[in-house]
């Protein structure tokens, strides 16, 4: 028996979410009294791989193959399943991000492993195996029981945190069995956004809504985000109107995020918007309407015109930064 965590890499590097996944896997391995194996697919150097050991991985399995430079769902899920079988892993853990959502269902069928997506806590028991997830897009939680022997979980980002341990990891490589059938999709072109903090990685997010009145008024949002090392986001009407790209849309049908600080400027806080941001550790709302529902979800509220409040906030942050 063992626990298997899959983490992707971004141009050969791991991220906080990788370490969070490993930490979470370590927690389950300890609960079940077993070892933790982490699998990495693609080109990652030994030093970077070794870092996964800092969070409790006993063994790190690397799979390198020139055909695996892009995510190919069939091939990747096949590799993860092969490693799970070889290592006798009964619990497989992935992120609940795009990649995890792409792979977990296929791995679930291959291993006949009951899948719980978007778990946000340690299992409350491992026999029977019961774990909590978010449902109704963050409006509720559910405890889900997995009845199959094999189990697969995808972890909601920023829901567990990072826990360092003594590094005892060893690195092994694995040669998967792949066929042409695993490569029936082909990546033709890749576009990467550079020089911006990614919304899903960001510790701080500055978000604008309809109250910003138009795309020409986004300067202060971007300036504040720049000062705080934050990502920028927006509400659905803003992306629907084309004021901002749809990648920035946070909410029920957009991105679900859980930063440490979410600053909502000119966002009224429709229930669908709150569903996407309510897991934020701290929410600041700036809105001129004191009855806006965003104030019910917020920790700190400012009733005022965003056009006036934001520049003042920028000045106050500048002052704070110069003093700290």
């Amino acid at each position: 028996m063992s626990i298997l965590v899959y983490t992707e890499n971004w141009d050969g590097k791991f991220k906080k979410l990788s370490y969070e996944l490993v930490s979470y896997g370590k927690g389950i391995a300890d609960m079940m009294g077993t070892s933790l194996i982490v699998i990495s697919i693609g080109d990652v150097d030994q030093g970077e791989l070794k870092k996964l050991g800092d969070y409790g991985s006993d063994k790190i399995i690397e799979v390198k193959n020139g055909k695996l430079n892009h995510l190919i769902n069939s091939a990747y899920s096949s590799i993860i399943s092969q490693v799970a079988e070889k290592e006798g892993a009964t619990v497989v853990i992935l992120s609940n991000n795009f990649t995890g959502k792409a792979l977990a269902p296929r791995v679930s069928v291959k291993l006949k492993a009951g899948l719980v997506s978007g778990v946000n806590a340690m299992p409350s028991s491992t026999d029977p195996f019961i774990v909590q997830k978010k449902t109704f897009t963050g409006k509720a939680f559910a405890n889900v029981k997995i009845n199959s022997v094999n189990k697969i979980l995808t972890l909601a980002q920023n829901s567990y945190g990072i826990k360092e341990t003594e590094n005892k990891a060893r690195i092994e490589s694995f040669e998967p069995q792949l066929s042409d059938n695993d490569f029936r999709t082909e990546v033709k072109d890749v576009k990467k956004v550079t020089g911006k903090v990614l919304l899903t990685d960001a510790e701080i997010v500055v978000s604008g809504g309809r109250g910003m009145k138009g795309p020409e008024n986004w300067g202060p949002i971007e300036e504040l985000a720049g000062l705080l090392g934050a990502a920028t986001a927006c509400s659905r009407p803003v992306s629907d109107k084309g004021w901002r790209p749809h990648e920035e849309h946070t909410g029920q049908t957009g991105k679900i995020i859980a930063p440490n600080l979410y600053i909502a400027a000119g966002i009224s806080g429709a229930i669908q918007h709150l569903a996407g941001v309510s897991s934020s550790k701290c929410i600041v709302a700036i809105n001129k309407d004191h009855e806006a529902p965003i104030f019910e979800a917020a920790d700190y509220g400012v009733i005022g015109d965003v056009q006036k409040v934001l520049p003042d906030l920028i000045e106050a942050v500048k002052e704070f930064k110069s003093e700290n």
């Binding site: 492993a113 939680f141 405890n143 709302a285 104030f295 920790d299 700190y300």
Partner: peptide
């Protein structure tokens, strides 16, 4: 089916918003 819902809960109520 491989999984089943045991029970549900609502998120804890949030403390009142502090106005600045």
């Amino acid at each position: 089916s491989l999984t089943e819902f045991v029970d549900f809960s609502l998120p804890p109520a949030k403390a009142a918003c502090k106005m600045v």
